[in-house]
Design a protein around this nucleic acid. Structure first.
Lengths: 199, 199
DNA sequence: GCACTTCTGCACCGATCGGTGCGGAAGGGT
DNA sequence: ACCCTTCCGCACCGATCGGTGCAGAAGTGC
């Protein structure tokens, strides 16, 4: 994104513009977000957007990356928790907070950004599916380690446990998109954690 | 939909066409489904579609109604089950089967049909949110009855239990949209049901 | 056979989609 | 001061969006 020091420097803050674009994608989805709406929110012209980010798909990819590093950075903390139970707890409560953050759209960009789409959204849909699968894989690896460390029973299935936890998170994202409050979702997360290990 | 017996009768089967439209909405979402794609799948012209169904929004509403009466009719069976535990079990396993039906799109129309959308999809999004809330309400009423009948502990919270069950179902719909198999999801449902009552 | 109604295919509507070509303005290096 | 690069606002591109007007064809009741 930074390529030259010579010439007229850009007048806008790329990170700030990307943040605004991320919010629009988060709220309206990949297909629902138009170039006009994106650039208006970003405060720049179409031409500047294309020069700085490539095209709509690339902008979406970069917005998702920013989302990963910012909004959902709690997953890093979760994976570093001491026990498998705490991993699940930090992950789920972090999800709830991210899905119901005041001033941000409800729900999760990684879920509602592109779930079912037409031809033009295929790439975005696949990018998000891969993104979710990647998160689930990190959880699975962590639970696998927990099994090896004796933190989980030796016959526990890390794949199933990771999928179970991710399913709860995905479901809460849908609930948040439908208007569920932080308190309601925290209680759901609490209920899901009563069951541990879940297999 | 049936209004006159005089005049030239329509040449296509409205129910059959609606079924095809439902599948397109299911697969591509409300915004992703174009009139061109819909009418092509339905095998009729734009004009015939408008005459028979009104407009795109009305077509979507009628497709959702057909989805309710067909694909997700298992919810009726679930609500009639003898115990709250069985209600949850029939509901969740029914969800898994509906989300992974061979020959149908993966996932749930009620979830992926319109989760995050632009201006033009607002109505569809709200229709679906209300649809999901309605299902959850039915579950809550059933669990409320279970409390009154002593089938659930007297301090159990029907609202929380219904939201918990619906969250699992919503999450499995996202998982299915991402490619999870029926077997994988049945194991998740089984794991979720180990935890009963979930509060 | 006639009148009446409705169906259907085609072309077309204005609006918007994602994406660009152009030309002037503006900053940095030397 | 010069040059060179980059930025940026505007107009515009073909394609597609949801939705319609028109006219001919076709079926039903009398």
């Amino acid at each position: 994104m930074e390529k030259a020091q010579i010439g007229r420097p850009r007048e806008f803050d790329a990170e700030e513009a990307l943040q605004k674009a991320m919010v629009v994608f988060w709220e309206q989805g990949y297909e629902g977000a138009s170039l006009a709406g994106l650039t208006e929110a970003m405060g720049i012209s179409r031409k500047s957007m294309y020069a700085a980010f490539g095209n709509k798909e690339e902008l979406f990819r970069k917005a998702l990356q920013r989302y990963s590093e910012g909004t959902v950075s709690y997953i890093v903390d979760a994976l570093e928790a001491a026990t498998a139970r705490e991993v699940a707890e930090v992950f789920l409560t972090g999800s709830v907070r991210a899905n119901t953050r005041p001033g941000c759209p409800s729900g999760c960009l990684g879920v509602q950004g592109a779930l079912a789409v037409g031809e033009s959204g295929r790439v975005a849909r696949d990018v998000l599916a891969e993104w979710r699968a990647g998160g689930q894989e990190h959880l699975r690896d962590r639970f696998q380690r927990a099994v090896e460390e004796g933190d989980l029973p030796s016959d526990a299935d890390p794949d199933l446990i990771a999928r179970y936890v991710m399913t709860i998170a995905n479901g809460m994202a849908v609930q948040a998109a439908g208007g569920a409050t932080r308190e309601e979702l925290l209680r759901v997360a609490g209920a899901a954690l009563l069951n541990w290990p879940p297999a």
